[in-house]
């Protein structure tokens, strides 16, 4: 296996590719999130008039998708490679295709298709139009033109690309089971597979997510995060009589919104949230996201 086709090689290639397009290459956000979109580099930076280009890997946690390491395609923890370009350049589709080429997808051999898929995140109060990108019938990326984030119109619109790294790597490597993925491209005893790195974690976290996660604690954490978010937003308001009307604590408040969202996902996986309650929890997180978005728009980076 060439270094380039290994799981980590794939990440390095994508980083290089997007760095060459002028993106800042960021590191994963240091909190548990359900998708790369939650990273403030996407959610918050998508708001406001300032141009922004970034790319990063984001470990994504979907507690409900855990399968105790027994399903070859499903994971409760996986990686997304996220690219955000604001405003979207006119040739974003071409750039995306060039990135596929860079990671070794031969465009004269493979059938790449853009199939309608409108993206919506009810918890982030965000939506956009775009596609699932198919490679020979398999969805390998999401491609979205953000129209609204945190309840605010995106002006200008950002283009977001999300690569499902495991899927893409399985495709590039021709592997049927995610745990068989070549992680580091080394030979002999140095060879490391995805399973070597993550199989045990998948088993342990599935157990945790479905059986052990302390629900009483999680319910508490949800309320705590919710009220912390509100109080940080209050505390970040400009002092009375201050010259600047800028908000001063949008990002710490948003961290609490992320936290509430993840705690909700854990509670959902534990099956302790009924169908009707589910909606109200989602709404509560959305309210936080909206308030954080509003605060962000009153910061320097938000264009105020």
């Amino acid at each position: 296996m060439s270094q380039k086709k290994s799981f980590q090689g794939l990440i390095l290639t994508l980083q290089e590719f997007w760095a060459a397009q002028g993106c800042v290459i960021l590191q994963p956000y240091d909190m548990e999130v359900g998708a790369g979109t939650f990273h403030p580099a996407t959610t918050l930076r998508a708001l406001g008039p300032k141009p922004w280009k970034a790319a990063y890997v984001q470990p994504s946690r979907r507690p409900k998708d855990g399968r105790y390491g027994e399903n070859p395609n499903r994971l409760q923890h996986y990686y997304q490679f996220q690219v955000i370009l604001k405003p979207n350049p006119p040739n974003l589709q071409e750039l995306y295709l060039a990135s596929l080429k860079a990671i070794g997808v031969d465009l004269t051999l493979h059938d790449i298709r853009f199939v309608e898929d409108d993206w919506e995140s009810p918890t982030l109060g965000a939506w956009g139009l775009g596609w699932e990108c198919w490679c020979d019938g398999m969805e390998v990326s999401q491609f979205t033109y953000f129209q609204q984030v945190a309840g605010f119109e995106c002006a200008p619109v950002a283009g977001e690309l999300t690569y499902g790294l495991e899927r893409l790597a399985m495709y590039v490597q021709g592997v049927e089971n995610v745990y068989d993925l070549d992680f580091n491209g080394a030979e002999g005893p140095d060879r490391i597979t995805y399973g070597d790195v993550f199989l045990q974690a998948e088993q342990e976290y599935s157990r945790h997510n479905f059986e052990a996660a302390d629900t009483a604690m999680l319910f508490r954490q949800f309320t705590d995060a919710e009220s912390a978010c509100r109080s940080y937003l209050d505390a970040g308001e400009p002092e009375a009589g201050a010259n600047s009307q800028r908000h001063r604590m949008a990002q710490p408040a948003y961290d609490q919104c992320i936290k509430a969202s993840h705690v909700f996902n854990l509670l959902d996986a534990r099956g302790v949230i009924s169908v009707t309650e589910r909606q109200s929890y989602i709404l509560r997180v959305r309210e936080l996201a909206k308030a954080c978005g509003a605060a962000w728009l009153r910061t320097a980076a938000g264009g105020a």
Partner: peptide, 13 residues
């Protein structure tokens, strides 16, 4: 049925 804005022009209403 559903339409969108895009690119640099979308900064303006």
């Amino acid at each position: 049925p559903k339409s969108m804005r895009w690119g640099a022009a979308s900064a303006e209403p």
